[in-house]
């Protein structure tokens, strides 16, 4: 994570009006919002998943399924939150592989859960 900050090239073509702490293209800002959008999309899918899990009066497996989905969403939120905090730096480090794999794992877990509930 620190390698990018230490050996990073200076931002090429940074506008004359750009201060040292601000990217004129607002790239960290846009990336932060992209994480927010993705968390929102994850929330919508999680709500659908909970709706799928709970169809009866609330038996033990249904409650467990709900808890699993909520934990998944919280995990995604945690990944996004950590990344958003890292993006607050003037020259943010490259996205870590763990965060990328974590986000992917959440989506895959949702898909596997869906298949398990369907069949």
């Amino acid at each position: 994570m620190t390698g990018a900050a230490a050996g990073g090239a200076p931002p090429a073509g940074a506008g004359a009006g750009a201060g040292p702490g601000r990217d004129p293209g607002l790239q960290p800002e846009r990336t932060r919002l992209a994480w927010r959008r993705t968390t929102l999309a994850c929330a919508v899918t999680a709500v659908l998943a909970v709706r799928q899990a709970v169809r009866g009066p609330g038996t033990a497996p249904e409650v467990a399924g709900c808890a699993f989905i909520v934990l998944l969403w919280l995990a995604f939120l945690g990944v996004a939150h950590r990344r958003i905090r890292a993006l607050a730096a003037p020259r943010p480090p490259v996205l870590g592989e763990r965060a990328a794999l974590g986000a992917t794992a959440c989506v895959l877990a949702l898909a596997v859960f869906a298949v398990a509930v369907l069949l």
Partner: peptide, 20 residues
């Protein structure tokens, strides 16, 4: 070599778009 951080951020946003 480490590329300009903005290219990496653009790559990250593309990744997030695919995740969405």
């Amino acid at each position: 070599e480490t590329p300009d951080y903005r290219f990496s951020l653009a790559n990250e946003r593309t990744f997030l778009a695919w995740i969405r």
